[in-house]
Amino acid sequence: MFQGSMVALVTPMHPDGGLDWEALDQLVEFHVKNGTDAIVAMGTTGESATLNESEHCEVIKRVIRISNGRVPVIAGTGANSTQEAIDLTRCAKEQGANAALLVTPYYNKPTQEGLYLHYKAVAEAVDIPQILYNVPGRTACDMLPETIGRLSKVPNIIGVKEATGDLERIEPIHSLSEDGFEIYSGDDSTCTDFILQGGHGTISVTANVAPRQMHEMCVAAMAGDSEKAHAINEPLKLLHRDLFLEANPIPVKWALYEMGMIAEGIRLPLTPLSEMYRSAIKDAIGAAEVNQEK
């Protein structure tokens, strides 16, 4: 259902932490103009963990309204409580999201059977396409390919965002999953090779800063043009690396602030980017030769 460069959109905030609706509208327009293939609202990069449920749903609603069908919207609706994940996913469906992205339950470290039953419960409760999201570096919970394969057989579950950075997981996920099950990279540093090896696209942090290049790289990679895809990706490598010098989304929000696109707002316990890393982010933006239409 989805392919290409899907931006894990930041949530703009004022310096006091209040949501900046005008900047959010401008970011959506920015991605429409620059070829982003889908917008993921309220994922990890959108600071979903620091917004309350009302704000969470309002951001999803706003992104859907401003995008106005010009680009698909995938709503981040995962939680470490199954009932909360159901509630957020129901909100996304009511607002008109094209799909939901659900991170593995964090902190409580469920078993593989617990993961299976969690996702199955959400899929059965809310009739909307759902994408699994495996990012053990943040959740302390690794959803194994065998569990992903089981879940691929559940109606509504259409794909997985695999953010381990381990390219060797692509083949077993493919082989264990139902035909048509989609696999997306969640690791910018390896996403070019991920797509060349059979992935359907990337849910990207870098796409916040360089949406046109990420879109063009994905087009080339999905066409099997390895030389062109790697050539487009080469100037982006510093961004892929340095946007994680501190916990995401700290660096990417500062990069967008430096580019004049959002205010320097972020919510505790996250803090603005440390001074020691700011020159590196500036250099990464320069190396990427970011030339987007604002």
Rank of each mutant, 00 (worst) to 15 (best):
E47Y: 04
E47D: 08
A49C: 12
A49H: 10
A49Y: 12
E55R: 05
I60G: 02
R62S: 02
R62I: 01
V63Q: 03
V63D: 08
I66H: 06
I66Y: 13
S67R: 04
G69Y: 13
R70M: 06
V71Q: 03
V71H: 03
V73C: 07
I74Q: 01
A75W: 14
T77R: 03
G78K: 02
G78H: 07
N80K: 04
Q83I: 11
E84P: 04
D87E: 11
K93V: 02
E94N: 12
E94L: 10
A97G: 00
N98R: 04
L102M: 10
T104M: 06
T104G: 03
P105Y: 07
Y107V: 12
K109S: 14
T111V: 11
T111F: 13
T111D: 06
Q112R: 09
E113T: 13
E113Y: 13
G114N: 08
H118P: 10
H118M: 09
Y119F: 15
K120G: 03
E124I: 06
E124L: 14
A125G: 03
V126G: 14
V126E: 06
V126F: 05
I128Q: 12
I131Q: 01
L132G: 01
Y133K: 07
N134C: 04
V135T: 03
P136A: 11
G137L: 03
G137Y: 02
C141N: 05
D142H: 15
M143H: 00
M143W: 00
L144N: 03
E146T: 12
E146W: 05
R150I: 02
L151Y: 04
V154C: 07
I157P: 05
